[in-house]
Amino acid sequence: MTEDQPRLIVEDLAKSFGGVLALSGVSLQAHPRKILSIIGPNGAGKTTLINGISGVFTPDRGKVTLDGRPISGLAPHKVARAGVARTFQNVALFGGMTVLENLMLGRNSKMRASVLSCGLFWGRAQREEISHRRQVEKFIDFLGISDIRKQPAGSLPLGLQKRVELGRALVAEPKVLLLDEPMGGMNLEEKESMARYILDVIETTDTAVVLIEHDMGVVMDISDQVIVLDQGVKIAEGTPQEVRANPTVIEAYLGQTHAA
């Protein structure tokens, strides 16, 4: 696969909830080893866009393809198995389970041992538990969370939870990584380390990253491409420099936040 061939293509995706048109025909392309950021005010439809890609709902209109294969309309678990992993704006870890178990769950769909094999913990089940554990431990090292691996995920502070959730998405070794405000509620240092992890991901794997983020500084620093959404419509796109200079954007979004 060549670098400039898009990994994920979203075409004309639309979705309305009741009367509210949350997303009205948005298109985008995400490339391997690149970070595509989506910005826009609250309620712009950013989360809805990501939900549409990961199959949370069937879009009213439009198409999503992953490496040329259509994935829109598939059940969420099939979209995940096709290679789309994500995090959630409001962290969705399994709070009662340990960090390790949460990460193992990120690889659950790769594990095929039968009920019998699992129940006897013999053969395939045992082999899988050990080999996937070994993979998961690599990500635990990468994210520097080895000292909390046996702690219940729900007991961790938000910043760590977001890191663990990134880990749960990464262990799936996805083709596309969707991150919904991974730095929300973080302090500066935490944001910096999260940005570092995201950059490491695109440097070490050929994952395409789609990032929703409010912190303009971070977005401008690490993105390859930026898309601006407002009221379900894409009002601008381009490199960070282009977007920053776009008058519509300054008026509709950047201007507002700066004024506020």
């Binding site: 990961s54 199959g55 949370v56 059940a75 969420p76 678990h77 979209v79 995940a80 198995r81 992993a85 994500r86 959630f88 969705a92 399994f94 769950l105 990120g106 659950n108 769909s109 749960r168 998405a169 799936a172």
Partner: peptide, 8 residues
């Protein structure tokens, strides 16, 4: 919901 989205 989260379970399904992570592939279960």
């Amino acid at each position: 919901v989260a379970a399904e989205i992570i592939g279960i």
